[in-house]
């Protein structure tokens, strides 16, 4: 049974980075609350990271999965 790799290794590195970005590690607990579009900035940045993950997924599916 021969199994070929479909996605190059760097794809998983990018996913790991996007995953790290989707959780607000970079903010201290008691940071001042900034609201953007009525929601806290940390929440908007998490949603944005997930959106980027979805866009990246479309990209790699179309480029590498033949």
């Amino acid at each position: 049974m021969k199994i070929k790799k479909v996605f190059p290794f760097w794809v998983w590195i990018v996913y790991a980075a996007l995953f790290a970005l989707s959780i607000p590690w970079y903010l201290p607990k008691n940071v001042e609350m900034n609201l953007v579009m009525g929601l806290p900035l940390w929440l908007i940045s998490c949603i944005l990271a997930v959106f980027l993950t979805a866009c990246f997924t479309i990209f790699i599916i179309n480029i590498f999965w033949r």
């Binding site: 607000p24 590690w25 201290p28």
Partner: peptide, 8 residues
Amino acid sequence: GVPSFDFR
């Protein structure tokens, strides 16, 4: 608020 370290 930003979730605590434990929650993260």
